[in-house]
Design a protein around this nucleic acid. Structure first.
Lengths: 223, 223
DNA sequence: AGGCTATTTATACACTTGCACAACAAGGCC
DNA sequence: GGCCTTGTTGTGCAAGTGTATAAATAGCCT
């Protein structure tokens, strides 16, 4: 414990540890996302971010050319994490296409994807996409990746039902299903307490199955 | 034309006009929304806003207690305008419920509701809703008003089809349809050039009708 | 152990920000 | 026309911003 009356202790330089480059960059990006989620882009100052990362502000310039590049990398990391999580629900190799689609919808409408912090981050960054082409591209890539994934599962589901569909129809289904998931995701993030657990997922599955013209699975039928 | 070499002209005070209170407040709010849409919350400084409104920064304090209150009023005005426009498509008194629902979906998936500027504003503000309870309340009110409107039309449509539905089912339909419109709205705002004119509205109408289990109207059926 | 180097801290700087306040003048009122 | 209210301008200020850069030290190499 430094003695406030001791001039030498007052001038003492802060102790520090040298971390690996990758680790430091990761920590700084995480601190940036936390700052943006809590106080918005205006509150995410270099000093706030550095404080949260446990370093001093000057260090940021050692890893990033400037604040803008740090924010862009943070957003890219966020989008990557979001789409990765979302698509993770699709890797059930053994299940039927319909079950995989249902699991996909369910996963996207529950924690950890329904999350106010992630939503705040998404909204804050996407609001700047119209003005910042770097952010716009990062979003576009994540979005198209997600929609292609949807389209692939839909194709499998319809094939399993022996329904022939042309490419345009398939695309429309994917767009609509993507919209259903996005819309319910927003509702869940913004007003999660208005819905009972699992309710959003149930609504989502029903809406998706209606869109595809699928009869409800037997175990989900009532009476 | 002031002479730059003339000291008296250099010190000349700027000419101004006294505007009505309501007019000035309106102008300031509009300038605020423009600033936020263009440069985000960080770029919306008092000086930028004042410049856009054609006044000097000091005047803002004469109409608003501080910057935060100005932003809150601006967001309230935005939400009000959005829901008002969205609901305006429902006032076709004479049309059938189904036609009114279709017109509602169409109106919400075309200009001026599909608009990158409005979307940027919405995203920027909503990203702060998690931290600012005033913004959160403004959003909640607009959202619930919108969803109630949807629920009312859905009830009319189902009644016209002589289908009995309980309250819970009705609520689920409204939530799903709301999500479909929101999701497609976002897609249209963020990547409007990926869709041909009217395509989003067509997708939306089909998805909504599928959700409600309605057979396509005759003139929309193919072959 | 001792030196080297890259990581990290600390300080400085020019600039912007929101806010406070005094000076000013526009326009209604008599 | 002259005055008075108050809408409006201009200036000042302390706090905070991103960036630049010098000074220090942690930890590897030999």
């Amino acid at each position: 414990m430094p003695d406030a009356a001791d001039p030498a202790a007052m001038n003492a330089r802060r102790k520090f540890r040298r971390e690996g480059e990758e680790r430091r960059r990761q920590d700084l990006i995480e601190a940036t996302l936390d700052s943006v989620a809590e106080h918005g882009l205006q509150g995410a100052t270099l000093r706030t971010i550095a404080l949260r990362a446990g370093v001093t502000a000057g260090l940021i310039r050692h890893y990033f050319p400037g604040k803008e590049e740090l924010l862009q990398e943070a957003y890219t990391a966020l989008v990557g994490r979001m789409t990765e999580q979302a698509k993770a629900a699709l890797v059930m190799e053994d299940a039927s296409p319909r079950r995989r689609l249902a699991a996909f919808v369910t996963a996207n409408l529950n924690a950890p994807i329904i999350d106010t912090r992630v939503f705040s981050l998404w909204a804050t960054f996407i609001g700047r996409a119209g003005a910042d082409s770097t952010l716009a591209r990062a979003h576009r890539e994540g979005y198209l990746g997600f929609r292609n994934e949807v389209e692939a599962v839909v194709a499998e589901v319809l094939a399993a039902e022996r329904r022939k569909t042309d490419a345009g129809e398939l695309r429309h289904h994917a767009i609509a299903i993507n919209a259903i998931i996005d819309g319910l995701w927003i509702e869940g993030c913004l007003a999660g307490e208005m819905f009972s657990p699992g309710e959003l997922a149930a609504i989502g599955i029903k809406a998706v199955e209606a869109e595809l013209g699928l009869a409800p699975l037997e175990q989900f039928q009532e009476k």
